[in-house]
Every structure is written in structure tokens, then in C-alpha cells.
Amino acid sequence: MKNELKMPAHCAVVSEDEMTYVEGGGYLDALSTAATVVGAVVLGASYVWGIGTARSWLNQKENRKGNVFTVIGRALDDIGEDMSQSPSNFLRDVVSTAAVVGLAPVSVVLMLI
């Protein structure tokens, strides 16, 4: 058995010197990095907004009446009402709720202090 490397017919062999000038994907790497940074900032801002909104909602005495399930149900009703006001409210509330629920252990501590 021979150890041969067979290249396709349309393959262009590049020498070591030519590899210096080959740059692939630089634009896409920068674009994906920028998108990641923007996404992280938006997610962070949504998380902070969600924590602040939850804290102010919990500071209203009438929202804390009842057992845990009653309070959660009341909170979901209020979130649903806010979501129905506009598509931007819907998107903002979905992202912030997902962030707050996704980081639940941290969120509970931040809401209660």
C-alpha cells in the first residue's frame, strides 16, 4: 500500500511563500465579533431592565399579596398585558424575561436585595 496524497483536478497548489498573502474570512470574523458584542450588550441591557422592572413591581404591596403561585400568576398577567401593547414591547419583554429566568439564581438575589 502506497501513502499518496491525491488532489482534485481543479486544486491549485500554494507554496509556503504564497501563504503569506492569503487571508480568508477576515471580514466575516470581524462582522461576527461585532454581532456578538452587540448581542451581548443588548442581552445585558435587557437583563438589567428586567431586574429593575421586577424589583419595582415587587415593591408595590398589592402585587405581593397571596401565595407564590398567585404572585407569579399576577406577574405573568402583567407581562402579557405589557407585551400586547406593541411588537417592540413584546420583543423586549421576551428577551428580558428569558434572561431573568435563565439566570434565576442570580436574579432572585438581585431582586430581593
Rank of each mutant, 00 (worst) to 15 (best):
I51C: 06
K2L: 14
D77C: 11
E23V: 06
P105D: 06
G26L: 06
N67M: 12
K6C: 08
L76D: 05
N3R: 11
R55M: 07
Y21P: 01
A104W: 15
C11Q: 03
V13F: 05
D17V: 10
V109C: 09
W57I: 02
V38E: 09
L43H: 08
D77R: 11
G39N: 04
A104T: 15
G102H: 08
S56I: 10
G39F: 01
Y27D: 11
S56D: 14
T70N: 10
T70C: 07
Y27Q: 13
A45W: 04
D93M: 12
M19A: 15
T33W: 02
G25M: 05
K6W: 03
V68P: 08
A35T: 09
V108M: 15
S32M: 13
Y21C: 01
V71N: 06
S107L: 06
D82I: 13
A75K: 05
A99T: 05
T70I: 12
V22H: 01
D77Y: 06
Y21A: 11
A35F: 08
E16Y: 08
G66P: 04
D93W: 05
D29G: 14
G102N: 02
Y21R: 12
V48I: 14
A40P: 06
A34T: 09
T53F: 12
S96Q: 06
V14H: 02
